[in-house]
Every structure is written in C-alpha cells, then in structure tokens.
C-alpha cells in the first residue's frame, strides 16, 4: 500500500488549471520534497492531499483511503502555509490540545523536545517570534504521531537558527519509518533533506528522482575558463560536452563527465586555458532548466 497515490488528478479554478493530470505514488517511509516555483501547483496538490480541496478529476488515496478518512483517523499531520495560533494560549496548552484530538498521539514532552520547544512551553502564542511560531505549528503537525507528515513551505518564516533546528526535528520524526512530504522552493532544502525530489511546474511533474539524478539529468557539471580571443571551434566535440556558451570572453561547457572534458581540453587542444573552474551542477541549474517556461 502506498502512503500517497495520486491517479490522474486535476484541479481547476474556473478556467485556470492549477494541477494538470498528476500521477504520483509515494512509498511509506520515504521523505519526499515537492519542489517548484510559486504557482506551480504545490499548495493546491497539498490541500487536496489533506482533503481541504476536492480534485476536479482523478482520485487521491492516502494509505489506501480517501484523504478525509485518513484525516479523521488521525493518520495525517500537516503544517499548511499560513496558520496563526490562538494568541491567548500558551505553547504547552496548544500542543496538548491538538495531541488529545488524535487516537494515539506522541507524549507531550516528546513533541516539545522534537520541535525544540521545551523552553517555550509556558509562553503565550502572541509573544512568539515568527520562527518560534512555525516550530509550534510543526509540533502541532507531529502531535498525533501521524504516519504521513505533510509540510507546506515549512521554513518560510524561519531564521537560519530556527531552520537548522526545524530540519533536525523533521529528520528525527522521519527516522521512525514515517512518510514525509514537504513542499519548498528552496533548492538546498530539497537537496539536503529528502530521499526523493519531485519537481512540478505548471501543475505537472517535470522531474522525479533523487536530487543527484535530477542534477545529472539537467546536464551534469559545468567547466568554465577564460577564452579571451581564442577560437572556440571544436569545444563542442570534447568528450562529455553537451553545450557550449561563450560570453564576455568566458567559455562555459556543460558536461556529463568533467574529468574527461578537462583532460581533453589540455591534451587535445592547443588553447591557453586560464582560470579554469569546475562546478558540480547544482540543483538550481537543474531546476531552472526544468521549470523554464517553454
């Protein structure tokens, strides 16, 4: 049984198609990043997953059930994008209230520890910083010990410190064999914290795999050097090279095999190569290549 299964799911608002025929299966125990630019359909997909929106077409199953059923059985915990807390209540009161709504929740102390809130337990929600409030919302999401944890741009309001603590908490939680799906537009987060990255753009999946696979799929590495006035003829024939760009006297080669490309550059050409730089393709390049408007 899949933790998440989307079968040909579409959602339109009037004439606008926000999600377009999404097919997606996530195995239990995976940590999946849903990556995409704003307006790609991430939040719409997540809200359908949580039963807050109904798909216009297609079927969604969470652990073999409809989203609403999974929610009412306490199998899903989530942090949606905006969600303020009740300002007059303390962190401890909020977390304890939400955990008691679930059939078999985590212990209060364990939740507070995972979300790094133990010191803030008596503080009222009105007095929390943005990052602290986000950590409380994370605590509310994990409070019921859900099998599926869904996080929609969880680190949006966090400073660097909160972010580090947040991801540590998320990894602790996922380590118990639970499934985590998080949406982000921060590429590093997808790269560092997931087993699998699903890139969506225009309501469709444009790439799906590990971060390494997605990087490789988008042309691997780049080799850059200063060419000045020298001829660029033959650069595109070097081993591994898939594209050559010359701009402002600098040559940029995209290559799947940087070692072979560089070796051939020195041995096989008479070019004077200066300021050679090799960069691993980062996910950002891959992402831009994948989500570029056609």
């Amino acid at each position: 049984m899949k933790a998440i299964a989307f079968t040909d799911v579409s959602k339109s608002y009037g004439n606008v198609l926000a999600v377009d025929g999404l097919d997606l299966a996530v195995e239990a125990g995976q940590t999946v990043a849903l990556l995409g630019p704003n307006g790609a359909g991430k939040s719409t997909s997540i809200n359908m997953l949580l039963g807050l929106l109904r798909p216009t077409r297609g079927r969604i199953e969470i652990l073999g059930r409809l989203p609403e059923e999974a929610v009412s059985r306490g199998e899903i915990g989530a942090m949606t994008q905006s969600g303020e807390l009740i300002p007059e209540l303390t962190v401890g009161e909020l977390v304890d209230f939400v955990r008691r709504l679930y059939p078999s929740p985590l212990g209060l102390d364990e939740i507070l520890k995972t979300a790094d809130l133990t010191d803030l337990v008596r503080r009222r929600a009105a007095k929390l910083s943005g990052g602290q409030a986000q950590r409380v919302r994370f605590a509310l999401a994990i409070a019921g010990a859900p099998k599926l944890l869904v996080l929609d741009e969880p680190t949006a309001a966090m400073d660097v410190e909160s972010r580090l603590r947040f991801w540590a908490g998320m990894r602790d939680y996922a380590a118990g064999g639970r499934t985590v799906l998080f949406a982000t537009h921060y590429l590093e987060e997808a790269d560092e914290h997931s087993d699998r990255v699903i890139v969506i753009s225009g309501g469709r999946i444009v790439a799906d795999g590990t971060a390494a696979q997605i990087k490789a799929g988008a042309g691997g590495h780049t080799v850059r050097f200063v060419l000045d006035g020298q001829s660029s003829t033959g650069l595109d024939a070097l081993p591994g090279v898939s594209a050559v760009e010359i701009s402002a006297g600098t040559a940029t080669l995209r290559t799947a095999d940087p070692d072979a490309t560089v070796a051939a550059l020195y041995r096989g050409t008479s070019l004077e190569v200066r300021e050679l730089r090799i960069t691993g393709a980062d996910l950002e390049d891959a992402f831009l290549a994948l989500t570029r408007e056609p």
Binding site: L50, A78, G83, I86, P103, G144
Partner: peptide, 17 residues
C-alpha cells in the same frame, strides 16, 4: 479570526469532527 488566520484549517486537518 479563526477562519481567516488558518486556525480553522489547522483544526480541519485533525480528527476533530
């Protein structure tokens, strides 16, 4: 306020009927 601030949404994704 609860409807607007997302607290209602928070409750809607718990088992609370």
């Amino acid at each position: 306020q609860e409807r607007q601030s997302g607290w209602l949404r928070q409750l809607q994704i718990t088992p609370l009927p």
